[in-house]
Nucleic acid binder design. Sequence first.
DNA 1: ACATTTGCTGAAAACGTTTACAGCATATGC
DNA 2: GCATATGCTGTAAACGTTTTCAGCAAATGT
Lengths: 339, 339
Amino acid sequence: MTTMREVAERAEVSVATVSRVINNVGYVSPDLKDRVMQAMRALQYQPSALARSLRRQETRTIGVLIPQIDQPFFAALAYAVEKKLFDNDYRMLLCSAQEDHDKEMAYAEILVRQRVDGLIVVPTGRSSELFDLFDQRDVPMVLVDRDIAEAKASRVLVNNFQGGYTGMAHLLELGHRHIRIIGAPAYSRALQQRSDGAHKALHDYGVNGDGELLVAGTLQPYEMGYNTALELLHQTPRPTAIFALTDVIAVGVMHAAAKLGLRLPHDLSVVGFDDIPLAGFMIPSLTTVAQPIYEMGAHAARLLLEHIAEPETAEHETVQFETRLMVRDSSVRLHEDKR
Amino acid sequence: MTTMREVAERAEVSVATVSRVINNVGYVSPDLKDRVMQAMRALQYQPSALARSLRRQETRTIGVLIPQIDQPFFAALAYAVEKKLFDNDYRMLLCSAQEDHDKEMAYAEILVRQRVDGLIVVPTGRSSELFDLFDQRDVPMVLVDRDIAEAKASRVLVNNFQGGYTGMAHLLELGHRHIRIIGAPAYSRALQQRSDGAHKALHDYGVNGDGELLVAGTLQPYEMGYNTALELLHQTPRPTAIFALTDVIAVGVMHAAAKLGLRLPHDLSVVGFDDIPLAGFMIPSLTTVAQPIYEMGAHAARLLLEHIAEPETAEHETVQFETRLMVRDSSVRLHEDKR
DNA sequence: ACATTTGCTGAAAACGTTTACAGCATATGC
DNA sequence: GCATATGCTGTAAACGTTTTCAGCAAATGT
């Protein structure tokens, strides 16, 4: 690999001069500048980010720690972050913990060793040791989507309560009264808040007693939706609508309905939550409460970069995004257009 | 950030000794080793990967350059690679070019500046300048999924011809004779090969004249599938089956069919290609020709690591994976079970 | 008794940059 | 004519590791 010394020798200048033209800083005569440029081109010189980072004490690299890369929601987040970082000449070191807390911690350690300038994280575990690691070394953090109370960090969250309310209110407006909620709130504060919002809506519309949610704790989301819906749809009277606290759960519900020969949305309305890309592709397309994931990722990156730019003035900031109801084809007015 | 010097001072040894216990190499007495360990713990010391990489002339980081992270196929690939690398104590620097050749080149330059030890790439552009960049500096590469003839690199590809043949043969075996292919082979060698394989199958089964493919060049895959199918399904006689050269195209086809009130698979059989996660979630679930994406990613990583381990002996290797037909619910025997 | 080996340790040179500092012309101000 | 500024350049010291080398004490071999 060709080094700055070699460029300097070829251009017959000192390394300091080469450095100056590379970084376009300080005085350097047009003549020398030219010679240096030429030498760089001839030698195909590319400066070492390693050496530069070591000397400058900054890497212009941000650690992005997410639970699972092969999950559309996080992939979209990563994309949004990546874009923002790239435009600001930062690199992204993407780490996928696969929902494994040990791996998450392992990656956290790697990230501090790599001396990342900041961290964007969707925490997997509940523990806060991860945050100590970065906090002690003054590397700024921002939490996205999932909150950890103890963390000293900025936050980009979504108003899950309001989202839960909106989703349920939509079904109630359509005339549904026999509605079931499917989700496992015990395992996630976010799901708990969605559930709470949904119940508030039921209460506000004067519907009660009927909306207990079915928890199927240990299952994976898809199976939870499928199995629970299968059970639910055999009951009499059959619910006319189901609010799934997650799109993936909703997809499970849709498959269960198909299995039973029910036709959506006429025989059953379904509403999901998240607006993963899959939601729009389902047949019928899934009505869902959308998280503005792209905006959230971009905002997280912005917050972090601001914090890095002025470490002293910046305070930790919490921003909560509002959800948006995406009305599509899986939900329909009760009794209308029934074949 | 605490440094090795500070650890050394606290343990009252030289930095050399600290380095030795960290890397567990050379002689160091139990007594000193203990003192060093204690000092490291007390100071929460984490060695700088920067300094180490600079000195060792290796970063244990692999560049992974893909066209689009927020696309399930590449996300799955990234996951497979990440896992393999992590297990071998390598980091992944993930770069998503967003199908933009300029951004791809920009990232390539960044990766050489970061001094990655190797590169795994799904090339976006057709140009080979990208490969020169790495080749000149002897950083080993492996191409995945898309081939570039000039590249001096190992390759992990899939047998698209055989896959095309298999998909089409499946429909033919089911009794279909009026089959249409949808895709835009002109823009991708892979799609061309799939199409060729499909035509070979038509020929082998004695069907001809009828399988011209419809090219809708400039469109995005989903729109291509939707629009083309809409047109196609108005023709008489109506095709009984459609072979989409891509799952996303197939999904477009399914939506078009739904729009026209056709019921799958009875009114129309559809076969896709790729086996993206979405395929299994569609209703009906999509029969498709699967690329073993996970295995391909893992294999690419393995190939690269081997090459890095023994730079002199290793030769460039090309491996071609076979596709696998995933028979699901979107394809069915002609005339059978027609309601 | 002396040479050699073994176990252990530290000094110092590298890795490839950036940057503080000093220095040297030449120009400018009086 | 001399002090001072201005424009430009190079020397050398960092940044935080790894690793070579030399050295020393104790053990071992003869």
